[in-house]
C-alpha cells in the first residue's frame, strides 16, 4: 500500500503567542514549533498500516525551510521518504489553496491512501483533507478513529459522527482520511531512526515548480486581524499568592456563588 501522510508545522502548544505588529497574524520569530498534534497520530496510523500490509509511507509538508525540522522528525519516526513543498507564502492560507497545492504535489504519485490530522492546531479549518478528496475524486472520512485494510482495495474505517455516535464504513481506495487525536500511541523516534533520517530521500519542490494556476492560488478567505478575545464573561480574577488566592476562592464559592 502506498501511503501519504500530510503534516503541518505549527506553534508548539505551550509557545508564548504574541500578535505581530501587522496585526493580521502571530509573531513567528523565535516561536517554538512542532508537528500539529492530530498529524502525529496520522503519521503513527500510517506507519502501523505499513507494518501490517507492507508498502511505503511518504510524508508531505507545505511550508518554509524551517519545516525541514518536522520533515526530519517524521522520517526519524519511520516514514520512508519526504516531499517538502517549500513556500513561505502559505503559512495562513485558506484550506482551498492548500488543498489545491497538495493535489498538485501528489497527482502523479498514485497514493492508495492519504492520511492527515483532522485539523491543525493553528488555523483549525478542519477542511484540507476533505477538499483534497474532492479535487482528486477520492473517497474520504473525517474524525477517523481506526482504519483496517480489507480485501479488494478497500478499507474499513470507524469515525465519529455526532455526539457519541461511531460510524463504521467501508471505503474504496484511493481514499483520504482525517485522523482524530488519541487513536494510537505515537512512537518516539529511535536513535537508529534519527541516524537514518538524513539518508532518506527528501524531494524539495518550490511552489513555482508546481505550476498551479492563478485561480488555484487565489485565496477564498483572508484573515484581516487577529487578537486576544475581549473578555466577555464576568470572570473575576483572584489575585494574591497561592495560599491567599485559595482562601479567597473557597470563601467566594461558599458565600457568593453558594456552590459549596
Amino acid at each position: 500500500m502506498k501511503i501519504l501522510c500530510c503534516v503541518k508545522q505549527v506553534p508548539e502548544k505551550d509557545a508564548r503567542i504574541r500578535v505581530a505588529d501587522s496585526g493580521d497574524w502571530i509573531h513567528s520569530e523565535g516561536l517554538a514549533v512542532a508537528i500539529s498534534e492530530c498529524d502525529r497520530y496520522a503519521v503513527e496510523a500510517a506507519l502501523r498500516l505499513k507494518e501490517a500490509v507492507d508498502g511505503e509511507v511518504a510524508v508531505l509538508l507545505v511550508g518554509g525551510e524551517q519545516g525541514s525540522k518536522s520533515v526530519k522528525e517524521a522520517l526519524a519516526m519511520g516514514c520512508d521518504r519526504a516531499i517538502h513543498v517549500i513556500t513561505d507564502e502559505l503559512t495562513r492560507s485558506d484550506p482551498f489553496v492548500i488543498s489545491k497545492v497538495l493535489a498538485k504535489a501528489v497527482e502523479d504519485e498514485g497514493f492508495d491512501l492519504v492520511l492527515t490530522g483532522q485539523q491543525s492546531d493553528d488555523l483549525g479549518y478542519n477542511a484540507v483533507g476533505q477538499m483534497l478528496a474532492q479535487h482528486l475524486g477520492m473517497s474520504h472520512a473525517q474524525i477517523v478513529l481506526s482504519v483496517d485494510p480489507v480485501e479488494d482495495g478497500r478499507i474499513r474505517v470507524s469515525h465519529e459522527l455526532d455526539n457519541a455516535l461511531i460510524e463504521t464504513i467501508e471505503l474504496s481506495l484511493p481514499a483520504v482520511l482525517g485522523v482524530q487525536s488519541g487513536i494510537n500511541d505515537v512512537r518516539y523516534a529511535s536513535l537508529k531512526g534519527i541516524m537514518q533520517a538524513n539518508s532518506k530521500p527528501q524531494k524539495k519542490v518550490t511552489l513555482e515548480e508546481l505550476d498551479l494556476s492563478a485561480e488555484d492560488l487565489t485565496p477564498k478567505l483572508r484573515i484581516e486581524k487577529v487578537g486576544f478575545p475581549v473578555r466577555t464573561s464576568q470572570a473575576e480574577m483572584i489575585e494574591g499568592d497561592a495560599a491567599a488566592a485559595a482562601r479567597t476562592l473557597v470563601d467566594k464559592l461558599r458565600t457568593e456563588a453558594k456552590v459549596l
Binding site: 502571530i26 483572508r222 487577529v226
Partner: peptide
Amino acid sequence: KVINGKLDARTVPA
C-alpha cells in the same frame, strides 16, 4: 478561533 482557541481571527471572504 485560531491558535488552539487562543486568538479571535477576523476573517473576510473574497
